[in-house]
């Protein structure tokens, strides 16, 4: 337009695109790494319902509101819901996956520190959504 040259703008756009390509590539790579579930991971079924969590271990034992796992082992969560959508979240281990009606969603982790960590619901699910909490207990 109106006679002036636009090369600074093109360089600027070029730099933006390069940065975006870098962020995109890094993100793609990290996602690829964290999505790969180890073959020996033990399955834990996670069932959300208004407003508590139930866990079912591979050996059939069930827990409500509390989840006991062992340090250094890999676990695969299979997440479902009995009523409305929820989201299963252990923030300290960056575990997050929606519990969607009619689906089984997966996410895995391998705890590397013993201790107690909060479990919470991250998807609005009605009256007591804010209080849909549990505890992850990682044992040595």
């Amino acid at each position: 337009m109106s006679g002036h040259s636009n090369w600074p703008e093109w360089i600027y756009v070029g730099v933006i695109i390069v940065l975006l390509a870098y962020v995109g590539a890094e993100a793609w790579n990290v996602e690829r790494l964290v999505e790969h579930v180890p073959a020996e991971a033990e399955v834990i079924k996670v069932i959300g319902q208004q407003w508590f969590w139930t866990f079912e271990h591979a050996d059939g034992t069930k827990e409500v509101g509390e989840l006991h796992v062992k340090k250094g082992h890999a676990y695969k969560f299979e997440i479902t819901t009995k009523d409305v959508n929820h989201a299963f979240n252990i923030h300290d281990y960056v575990v997050l996956q929606d519990a969607v009606a009619g689906r089984v969603n997966e996410v895995w982790f391998a705890p590397d520190k013993a201790g107690e960590f909060p479990i919470q619901c991250r998807e609005y699910c009605g009256l007591l959504h804010y209080n849909m909490r549990g505890t992850l207990i990682v044992e040595e």
Partner: peptide, 22 residues
Amino acid sequence: LVFAAGTDAHEYVNRKIEIWNL
């Protein structure tokens, strides 16, 4: 980086560290 990673199968990927690094 992508093709070099993932060869060492014994240590589990630590999602916490990977994602926070990102």
